[in-house]
Design a protein around this nucleic acid. Structure first.
Lengths: 224, 224
DNA sequence: TGTAATGTTTACCAACCGGTCAAATTATCG
DNA sequence: CGATAATTTGACCGGTTGGTAAACATTACA
């Protein structure tokens, strides 16, 4: 009997391996562009180069596809944050984090948009993951940052909002790519905007988080 | 003959005024949550408290509704940037801009998400607006910022990426609200996160853009 | 090779989609 | 009031949606 998969206790076939990969790749393409509700199974099947029933043989529902995709992406998406090291130099850690996140926006914009779409639309399918693994990881890294602050290695600030800001600024170049391109104009070659962004963001964050000695930045500013 | 509207040369009725307002409010609710393709006319009609044919009497197509909504929102959404004043003090202008954008994220999150959804999904319906009015406005304000830099009032940086960063960080609190709440936990009362964000972002941007005298922020950092 | 498990296709379905139509209802105003 | 225009409704339409059934083809493996 052709059990579609799922209630599958045995090993996965070579064909299963290949086709599921193909499908998830296509699903990423479509979901990231239209969101869950806006995406159609027919569309995903077409991009994957197979018939709809064939696709549904591997993933019984559209939702199953989406779940599988989200799970995989969320994992790799958090890797840069996991790499955040308490024993490292605050400057190089923060700089490195910004760079890695920016590289991900450049190299994996679809993954970023998939996630953005999901969160933007209320995260109906990943609320648990956000409140569980994500929150735990962020709490952990926030503690690291707070330790740096207490040690006087960086200026005093709210570590959560620091992390939010790094997320926002770096993912902006993937999620709002169309807008960024529209504003910057089509003139420049491929990835120049990422270079410029890296330069700017380093300056912003490393300057903004520097320890303020005596006269803070704000007062220096007010003089202008 | 019951001309639905649109080919309407005469004055708008009181009922038209009211119902169109009601519809656009409902459309904002639904479009901002599901994007254009994910939203259904039935859903909007239900939220607006009227039958689908009745709704389609005022806006002949789903797309017409979306267009009307986008046009209205984009306008008010850019107001804070328009208020950016060349003759003002750079510090108070930038601080004011951040505050206003943050207030908009707090008070009009649906408008932000509507826009985010649209851009995220490739901005198929507003590409012209982005490349036209938006780009023009940003170019204009970028020139203002560049003038401040040349005058030595703020540190050297790319004005475009500065604007992008302010957009990204402030709109993050509307667009990724679910995620922000999940990470921060439900503990705190209503809008505390916006207060904290305002505090953090001011520090970040005003510190990050301060004129660096001699030893830059990075070198002060490296000492840590 | 044979055969059982796995994979693929064609035809199809009920529900839902955006949108139309004509008839019925209500507001407007002389 | 009466009549004309504006509004609302229910019934409906062709196309698309996510998903199914079963026949057919292919693979893995003893």
């Amino acid at each position: 009997m052709a059990l579609p998969r799922a209630a599958r206790t045995q090993r996965r076939t070579r064909i299963q391996e290949e086709k599921e990969e193909l499908i998830l790749e296509a699903a990423l393409e479509v979901f990231s562009l239209h969101g869950f509700r806006g995406a159609t199974v027919d569309q995903i099947a077409e991009v994957a180069g197979m018939s709809k029933p064939n696709l549904l043989y591997y993933f019984r529902t559209k939702e199953a596809m989406h779940r599988a995709l989200i799970g995989r992406v969320l994992d790799t998406w958090l890797d840069p944050l996991r790499a955040f090291d308490a024993s490292g130099n605050p400057v190089s850690e923060i700089r490195g984090y910004i760079r890695r996140k920016l590289e991900m926006s450049r190299d994996f914009p679809r993954e970023s948009r998939l996630f953005a779409n999901e969160v933007l639309q209320g995260a109906p399918n990943i609320e648990d993951e956000l409140k569980g693994p994500l929150k735990t990881l962020v709490d952990e890294k926030a503690a690291v940052i707070r330790a740096w602050i207490k040690a006087g290695k960086i200026g005093d600030c709210d570590p959560y909002h620091l992390i939010f800001s790094i997320w926002a600024t770096t993912q902006h170049y993937a999620d709002f790519d169309v807008q960024v391109r529209a504003v910057l104009g089509e003139g420049l070659a491929g990835d120049d905007r990422f270079e410029a962004a890296a330069w700017f963001l380093e300056q912003l964050f490393l300057g903004g988080l520097a320890v303020r000695s005596g006269t803070g930045a704000a007062s220096a500013f007010d003089a202008a």
